[in-house]
Every structure is written in structure tokens, then in C-alpha cells.
Design a binder for these strands. Structure first.
Lengths: 328, 328
DNA sequence: CACACCCCTGAGAACGTTCTCATTGCAAAC
DNA sequence: GTTTGCAATGAGAACGTTCTCAGGGGTGTG
């Protein structure tokens, strides 16, 4: 009769390779001593049987979790709809899969940062990826989680943090607008409580100050709806505006929507730029000039940092490169 | 000295409730007999200690997996960028989290369906959610996975399947276009190998036939780039076209992009409709008339079906309701 | 030859659940 | 009063891995 179709275990590999389970484990987990010929026999056996370690058993004994929680911070659950967030989470899931770790998605309401504690106290959580982090969020991270947290959006010496060079990216964009003759440049910022939004604003102010121009700043919140409304506010306050810098692509989708609906020519009357280079940025009318970021690389770095544990706490700044399209 | 901050285990609960681990397990997993007062004592103890079962241990002994794999089928990895897919995966992750199960995201290339076998043979996979399923994909599902698979995109008696009423949704949209005076209605279909795309096409043909109108069909692939190109093909072949039905919102984003760039008025010259009601559909210029679907509900149904195992194989059709905006 | 020393290995105990099996009561049926 | 049957419980073995510990066996030095 054929074997009952049970998945091969470490014991099976050990039996085939004629070694003990301990030795097989050492070889396959690649820690501890193992003679070259033993190593070969074990890997051959594993190969032959198509052995795959059981993530559950491994997680159980290692005390490590079994899923990684991606926590997206924001005032409304709609942040989860942002393509930038989607890209981060998607990339994280792809990186985790080979490790037998899954990804759970969670929204952290700004009003209730205490939820972070609950999240961390859950069993089986191998770590946290915080998206849209703020200092307040960082402060709410329970100490038990220290070392298993990666932060996207604010640097910190106590957790691994990965960030986008919003300052550099925004500077490049605003300088480009200036270089193409724009002199009355407005900005629709991101949510003011986000450090990355602050960096963009400072960069914007910096370029204008250097050029001797006054800032025109309206607060946004990274949503398209707010972007649209904010664009109208800009025009109401400063009717001669000739460029609008959006804090995110989604913001600028709203800006384009509002301007075009009001009969404003883009880029004829007003130039518009976004931030993130989401897939649809090339599909708007006119296509959106924006700044691109290595999202997959960021997610990969964050996941590996968390999965490798608390040894190293890297702080990396990823570049922001302008992408010139039709809108500005 | 204080306890060394170890998470409470079932044994702790049992000790506090003064019962055996077996009894505690019975109560908390809610299977097997337990006297009312015992039940109370155990739940009280669990509550008091803040007990959370360890998903890894549970998965290990139950033989059930530890993560759920969402497999998105398509010709290019760009399918993963589709907002519809993002919404499904996000909803799935949210449903899974309380069960201690994570979600992994995977792209299944049309050219290499055999990858599905590898995916299924991986340890720790509690089930598969197939997005964009086709009969060929279903046939490639290894028998060992039967009963742990949910299919989105094609019905089947052997796996749980959840589907959108593409036919009904498309019919409503096309009839709406007809009712508003459009008589030369073209369609840009989805990828031809997808059954749901086929249903939409049939519905489109059906309405036109009933009205005595000839179809104008160009094949798309659910991407914005192809949508844009296809729109131009439509105008090249049938210059008097007065409406274009896109198979997805993303397709129609491309259509809008192409038409507007060519100076066509929407909806003045040509009406455009989408499908899915993605968040950005309200933000295009003009805003996109489309059809909305209970994505979160679909994902929830699929996840619970897989997690509950092979007992029931529901086949559900979810409704598609038209959303009227400016584009048509 | 004896003594370290170091590379390598195996036995066996964890990890935290669930599940099978045997055993206890206790009530109803004979 | 004995038997049957069932609700309720506990003891203990799984599940598949990793890790600690205690040795073997070589080699080089004294």
C-alpha cells in the first residue's frame, strides 16, 4: 500500500540520512556543528523527501510568533485604502511567506493608541510593522515588544526604523516647479501629526524661503476628498496660485479632480505634483508628476529587521526620486 | 519577586481554576462535555489571567496551518496592484487575525499553474483563497487541499466558491446607458480566460441583442494601460461610438485617460462606466459611473469557509449594484 | 603514553496545545 | 439491588521542532 500521504517530518529526514533528529535539525536550521559529509547526507535526504519544516512547530519551540502584524496608524480606517499602504503590506506578505509567517493587517485609531498594547499582548505575534508612525505611537509600544518592532514614518533609536526621504523628494519637486517658472507655489500637506508630513512641509518652506517667496500652506490628510477641498481653499485664498504640491498621490488625485471640475487647466493654469508614484499616477489626466520610492525594498528591510529580532536596530533613509510627467 | 512576565498558558488557567489541562481545554475550545460550574470557573480564570491560546501550539497539534495563502491568478504580477485585489486581501487579513492566522499573498502566473501544487505542499498552510479563479486553476489544485480552498471568480461544486454577479451588474449598467440614449455602446472586456469576464461579455451582448444593436467588443486585461489602448482601438474601428463599458474600474481609468487625452468629451461625446467601485472611482474627472460590490463580505465569507474546513461547500453569488456618477 | 582540546553526534527534555482513553459518579431502567 | 448508560473529569500521549547536555572520537602537545 502507498504511504498515507503524510507530510515528511524532520524524523523522516533523519531516518533516511541515518542520523539523529538533533543532527538533522542542526544541519537544516544551519546552527551548530556538522561534518561536511553528514551535512550532505541530510540535505540530500531533505531534498529527496521534499521536506518542509513545519512553521507551527518551529514557532512553538522557538517561542517566536507565527504572524506579523502590520499596524497602520491614522484617524480613519480609510488609510487602509491608500495604495501606498497596500503596496507596503503586499510586499511584507511576500517577504514573510518563505519564513512561514503570515501578515495581519490592523488599523490603529489615533484616538485609541492603547489598542497597540492589546495587539502586542496577543500570542503568536512575531512582531509589529508600524506604518505612519508618530512619536506618540512609539511611546505606546509596550516594552515587551521592544526589538520586534519596525517603524515606517519616524526615526527612533529604540526600534528599527525605515523612512522615506520626504525632505529631499519634496525639495526636488518644488525646485523643479520653480525651475519651470512657477512662482506662486502652494502646498497641501499631509496629516499634521505625521512626522513625514512635517518633513515635507519644512522642505517646501525651505525652498520657497531660499527663493524669497511666501509659503501658501493648506492642511490635508492624505485622502482624495480632502485634497479636492483643500485645492479649492487654496484658490479661494490665493487665486493667482500657479502650482500645487500634494503630500501624496491620493491627495493630488483629489486636487486634479477639484481643479479640472472647476475648469482650471492643468498644467496650463496650475501645475500639480503628487508623492509616492502609485500605479494610477500615470493614468490621470494629465498624468501626475510625482516622486517614486522603493516601497518593496522598504517593506523587505522592515520585515527582515523584525524577523531577525532585536540584535540590530538599523535606521535607514530611503531615497525619493522625482518622476516627471504631464501635470507639472 | 514578581513573576518573570511569561504569557499565561493553559496550564496556568487550569491551576487557577483547579481543574486539569484537559478540562480547561475542553471549556475554552468549547468542545466536549463540561459542567456549568466548571465552565464558569475556567472562563473566570482565563479572564483573570488574560489568557490567550498560542496559535502555534494549537496549529501544531490540530495539524491545521498557521497562515492562509491568498493566491491571485493573472498573467503579470501587476494584478496585485489592482485595488479590488487589495480590498479582498485586506479584508481577509482582518478576518483572520482573531484566529491567530496570518495571510500570505501570492501571485500565480498563468504560465505556471504548477506553482499551486508547491504552495499547497508547503507546511503550515491552512488554506487557499483563489482570486481570479479559472477552471484551469481549479483543476491544478492538488487533491490534498480539497476542502481548504475558496474560489473567487468561478463557481464549482468541489470547492467553496464566492462570486460576484457580473452578469447582473453589467446588464444594469448597459441598460442604464441605453436608457440614457446611448445606442453605439462598446465594451472593453476583461482577460478572456476569466469566467467572470465572460459573464460580463455575455450580459453585454444580451442587452444589445435584445435592443437590436450590434456589439462592439475589444479585449482588455483589467489594466489601465490596456484600457487606454483599447479605447483608442474602439474609436479607430467604430468612430461613432457613444459609450464604453469597461470591465473594471482600473480599465476605465485607462479609458478615461485615453479619451480625455485625445480631446474626447466624457460623457458629452462618449459615456464611460467601470466595475468594482474602487475608492478612486469618485475622484476621476468626470467621476466614474460603476457598479459596487460587498468586497469585505465576500472576503469574510471565503475566509470563514476555509477556516471552518471541508464540511460545507457553499456557493454564493454576491450582488452587483450600479453607482451612478458623472461619466455615464 | 597521557592529557587537553575541539569537532561532532545522539538522547531526551522542553514548547503549549488537543485528543484518546480510562475512570468516576449518578440517575434511570430492569 | 444490580445493571446500563451517560455526563464529567483526569492522566498522559501525541504533534514536529529546537536546544541543552553529556559524551565519543579524533588530533596535537607535553
Amino acid at each position: 500500500m502507498p504511504a498515507p500521504q503524510r507530510a515528511p517530518t524532520l524524523a523522516d529526514v533523519a531516518r533516511v540520512a541515518d542520523v539523529s533528529r538533533a543532527t538533522a535539525s542542526r544541519v537544516l536550521a544551519n546552527n551548530g556543528y556538522a561534518a561536511a559529509h553528514t551535512r550532505d547526507r541530510v540535505t540530500a535526504a531533505a531534498e529527496k523527501l521534499g521536506y518542509q519544516p513545519d512553521p507551527a512547530a518551529r514557532a512553538l519551540v522557538r517561542g517566536t510568533g507565527v504572524r506579523l502584524v502590520t499596524v497602520v496608524h491614522g484617524t480613519s480606517p480609510r488609510v487602509l485604502e491608500d495604495p501606498y499602504v497596500d503596496q507596503v503590506v503586499g510586499a511584507a506578505a511576500r517577504v514573510c511567506a518563505p519564513h512561514g509567517v503570515g501578515v495581519a493587517l490592523h488599523w490603529l485609531p489615533t484616538r485609541d493608541l492603547a489598542q497597540l498594547r492589546q495587539l502586542g499582548e496577543q500570542r503568536g505575534v512575531s512582531g509589529l510593522i508600524l506604518v505612519n508612525t508618530t512619536p506618540a505611537v512609539l511611546a505606546a509600544v509596550p516594552p515587551t515588544l521592544r526589538g520586534r518592532v519596525a517603524s515606517l514614518g519616524v526615526g527612533s533609536p529604540v526600534v528599527a526604523s525605515f523612512d522615506i526621504d520626504n525632505g529631499g523628494g519634496t525639495t526636488a519637486l518644488v525646485e523643479h516647479l520653480y525651475a519651470t517658472g512657477r512662482r506662486r507655489i502652494a502646498m497641501i500637506s499631509g496629516s499634521s501629526w505625521l512626522p513625514c508630513a512635517g518633513r515635507s512641509v519644512r522642505a517646501y518652506r525651505g525652498v520657497l524661503r531660499a527663493a524669497g517667496l511666501p509659503p501658501r500652506l493648506v492642511r490635508g490628510d492624505f485622502t482624495a476628498g480632502r485634497g479636492r477641498a483643500a485645492a479649492r481653499e487654496v484658490l479661494a485664498r490665493w487665486p493667482d496660485t500657479d502650482a500645487i504640491v500634494g503630500a501624496s498621490d491620493v491627495t493630488s488625485f483629489g486636487v486634479l479632480s477639484g481643479l479640472l471640475r472647476d475648469g482650471v487647466q492643468v498644467p496650463g493654469d496650475i501645475a500639480v505634483t503628487g508623492f509616492d508614484d502609485t500605479p494610477l499616477a500615470a493614468m490621470t489626466n494629465p498624468s501626475l508628476t510625482t516622486s517614486t520610492h522603493p516601497v518593496a525594498g522598504i517593506a523587505t528591510a522592515a520585515v527582515t529587521a523584525v524577523l531577525n529580532g532585536n540584535a540590530i536596530l538599523p535606521q535607514t533613509l530611503f531615497p525619493s526620486r522625482p518622476v516627471h510627467r504631464m501635470s507639472g
